[in-house]
Design a protein around this nucleic acid. Structure first.
Lengths: 350, 350
DNA sequence: ATGAAAGCGCTAACAA
DNA sequence: TTGTTAGCGCTTTCAT
């Protein structure tokens, strides 16, 4: 696997009758080299099978590279807090190879904050950036800017329909809805299902869960077309209202035992569900927020589908680091992460 | 997060009035240093917050470090083939920091082959070794030898009751049996269960699945004590016999719809099961062998519990590499991996 | 357009 | 026991 591993720029300098300096110049295309010398060097590189020594290069260059992570601010116990936690993990491993990570946060409901923070981020002149596409238009102009500056970037969580990104790490959304339906029904006919939704999402430009919902509904349509599917909308900022909404619903629909939520907020329904137990009930939600996992443990939630957001940012950072430092391209662009099925029996080691 | 990042051994040499050489000596505990100087250097390191520059170190050292992986030979489509596949993954990332990986294989049913291969492995003078403890006694003497030579080692898959290892990566076996039972029953009472076992395991000194079986039986005892549990033994090398055994069993027990196997060989039962479908049947097995995953896809197996053996060896190698190169100790010794629940709906991105 | 030379921070062999 | 020194392979001025 390892080559003879001895050819240095000195070897190729000698071979071409040029100097280390010139060789270096062609190696980095920094002009100031005659066509002739350029060709000679290139040839020698080929023939000798020269491979640069990363350590020497990095040592000589000195300094550090910067990788920026641009994601929504993490309110406590939110999905993005999980994602942010992947930063430290990545930091630990890339810091040893001379790259630092800066974390930029914006308000995911405020496009201006995104613009502002994105600007700040650019000023830091990062060698790579990890980002989650929240505002479509703004994301587009940002990536254009990045492309212009030759700064590579990775998407996590979801990705737009563009193509200039270095890599993407996320869950296959449509399939996650399908999986969710299967876990909810347990593969058995079910007469009715309640979908709890966050009111805001109803009008949100880009509801990240639409694809997931589509997958869910398709599964139901294909397997249990008779199943009745209800929707209840709640407000994440008004717990009492949530309780009231669910209460009202279940009073008129005591026969509904299957409950599902497509975003990471199933924990919002937990207080009501826990206060009104139903031995026949089955509840499925998404993402391993602490509150969700607690609900799994105490039995209020049956199954959680997880996507390791921390691992997503970790991988994105690693990919960027390898590219920025070693010029190593990832084997493929799109990385659909495995969907983890969590129950009370395997949640502990997650 | 990033310190001023400028302190070199030269700084600490000046600070202590000693020379680079001496500082280097204490940095690497290579004796030849007076207690006094040692203390001074250590203090300066603390105060200045010195952190070695990996690149410079690696550049100066030159050459490569070696990490050896010592696991059973991987017959095609076996569990150990999966583990072995983690080697390449790890290789790709550690090779850039100057470490090579050598893979040693032995016959897991032949203790002599283990001895022989272990000897060869030692001759390669690795800086670290990854191993799966198959033969208890031999493993013990090998680890003693490694300790003597100051070579760190990690266990994967399972681990003995010793303590000198750098880290361990594996599935929590007892809990995996518990989880398995829950997936098999779907949390509903079940009148009877068939456990398929490999005959050889019956007398095998160290059946890796005993703990798993214990977890399974405990779950059943606690939740469905009335459930009848049958065992059928099969021979992995005699497919017709397997078919016959299952056939005989199901002829006399047509009412049994729940089937489970605790090792990675559920695929051995697939031909029979597929030929004799039962819409009520539920089958649970372990490990993501290709044949098992195919059975998941075609519906013969309902659930597979996976432990990412490739990830286990990858992590073990990474840990060893970090330790061997950077002297970085892992945050903890024992790493119980998450148990993945695989169904036909989430098997694709695994 | 090209060459010479001074490091980058650390290791290791040799002196002292 | 300690200090000195010559690299490791590459980058980057600064002359030429």
């Amino acid at each position: 696997m390892a080559a003879t591993e001895k050819i240095t720029i000195m070897d190729i300098a000698r071979r071409t009758g040029l100097s280390k300096g010139t060789v270096d110049r062609v190696l980095h295309n920094r002009g100031e080299v005659s066509k002739k010398s350029y060709a000679k060097v290139m040839e020698a590189i080929q023939e000798l099978g020269y491979e640069p020594n990363v350590f020497a290069s990095l040592l000589a260059k000195g300094g550090k590279r910067l990788i920026a992570v641009l994601i929504p601010a993490h309110e406590n116990g939110s999905f993005w807090e999980l994602a942010a936690s992947g930063i430290d993990k990545a930091a630990a491993s890339v810091t040893t190879v001379g790259v630092d990570i800066v974390h930029f946060e914006y308000d995911q409901y405020d496009i201006d904050s995104f613009r502002k923070v994105a600007g700040k981020m650019l000023e830091a002149r990062p060698s790579g950036v990890v980002l989650a596409p929240m505002f479509q238009g703004e994301t587009e102009s940002l990536t254009e800017e990045l492309t212009q500056r030759g700064i590579p970037y990775c998407f996590i969580d979801s990705k737009p329909d563009t193509n200039g990104y270095l890599a993407y790490f996320g869950m296959p959304l449509y399939k996650s809805g399908y999986l969710c339906a299967d876990q909810l029904t347990g593969g058995r006919d079910v007469p009715s299902v309640l979908i709890i939704r966050v009111r805001r999402d109803r009008f949100s430009q880009s509801d990240p869960t639409v694809n997931r919902r589509a997958g869910f509904l398709d599964y139901m349509m294909e397997n249990y077309p008779e199943c009745r599917i209800d929707n209840v909308f709640i407000d994440p900022n008004a717990p009492e209202e949530t309780e009231a909404a669910l209460s009202t619903y279940f009073q008129t629909h005591p026969d509904v035992h299957h409950v599902v939520m497509f975003n990471s907020r199933i924990h919002l329904a937990v207080p009501y569900l826990q206060a009104h137990p139903d031995p026949q009930r089955r509840v499925v939600g998404f993402d391993n927020l602490k509150a969700n996992m607690d609900a799994l443990r105490n039995g209020t939630v049956s199954v959680l589908i997880g996507q390791r957001p921390d691992e997503q940012v970790n991988l994105a950072i690693q990919t960027l680091a390898e590219y920025a430092i070693l010029g190593k391209l990832p084997p493929r662009k799109d990385h659909f992460m495995h969907m983890d099925i969590l129950t009370s029996y395997n949640v502990e080691d997650y």
